[in-house]
Amino acid sequence: MKRGVSFLVTVAFMALASFLASAYDPSPLEDTCVAVDEPNNAVFVNGKFCKNPNLTVAEDFLYQGLNIPGNTSNYVGSIVNLINVDQLPGENTLGVSVARIDYEPNGQNPPHFHPRASEVFIVLEGTLFVGFITSNPEHRFISKVLNKGDVFVFPFSLIHFQVNIGHTNAVAIAAFNSQNPGVITIASSMFGSNPPINPDFLARAFQLDKRVVEYLQARF
């Protein structure tokens, strides 16, 4: 009898250990997700609520229009059309999203990073100079000129950019391993925050004259 109980305890312990080894917290899909004690006060979840599987239709998994060029008439000369879970509900819980980026000549996708994703970057048309910077303290700048058909990877959460160095428009597709990769553009985040960051602090942090910082804050 004791041997049987001991065997059952061992099996139960092994099953529990296996469960704990396979359990994990999901990666964050929002910038913040503060816990609340009262569910009635809850607004967001880490992701999206799920539709009844019996009610899903093909349109839930379809997005049309990625073939349409974006309007690049802006100060950076590029436009990003991100298809995340908000535009394509079928992405929910799958950990994927995609974007089309259009560039006019000399247009750029300025230095930015994705807090929740790595990126696979594919050039469809044009010639792009791309690069990323490794973390402290090395700050290695890794760059490459890409042409049609080239594929480049931007590692998770590292600052990166693209510039159209050709004489014609350029188009690229980016794929992310998150349904909501997020984007933090360095310049607009630092100089266009709401409310503004103290210009004295930014002047010292970026080694700039305070008047330059105030000019940049006014621009952004």
Results as ranks from 00 to 15, higher is better:
K2M: 05
K2I: 05
K2V: 10
R3C: 02
R3K: 15
L8S: 08
V11N: 11
A12H: 10
A12E: 01
A12F: 12
F13N: 06
A15Q: 12
F19I: 13
A21V: 12
A21I: 09
D25E: 11
D25Y: 15
D25F: 14
P26Q: 03
S27L: 10
T32S: 07
E38L: 12
P39M: 03
N40R: 11
N40M: 09
A42Q: 15
K48V: 02
K51L: 00
N52A: 03
T56N: 08
V57E: 09
E59F: 05
Y63E: 07
G65A: 01
G65L: 06
G65W: 03
G70R: 11
N71P: 08
T72G: 11
S78I: 04
N81V: 01
I83T: 05
V85A: 03
D86R: 05
E91K: 07
G95D: 00
S97H: 14
R100P: 01
E104G: 10
P105S: 03
P105T: 02
P105W: 14
F113T: 02
H114E: 00
P115Q: 13
R116K: 13
S118H: 09
I122Q: 11
G126K: 15
F129Y: 15
V130L: 03
V130I: 05
N136C: 00
H139R: 07
I142H: 04
V145G: 04
L146H: 09
L146D: 00
D150G: 11
F152D: 05
F154L: 04
P155W: 04
F161A: 05
V163R: 14
I165H: 01
V171C: 11
I173V: 14
A174H: 00
A174T: 13
A175G: 14
A175L: 12
A175I: 14
F176G: 06
Q179C: 04
N180R: 15
G182R: 12
G182F: 08
A187Q: 07
G192C: 09
N194Y: 14
P196V: 02
F201H: 07
F201A: 10
L208F: 11
R211H: 07
R211Q: 14
V213C: 09
Y215K: 15
Y215L: 10
Q217G: 12
Q217W: 12
A218H: 15
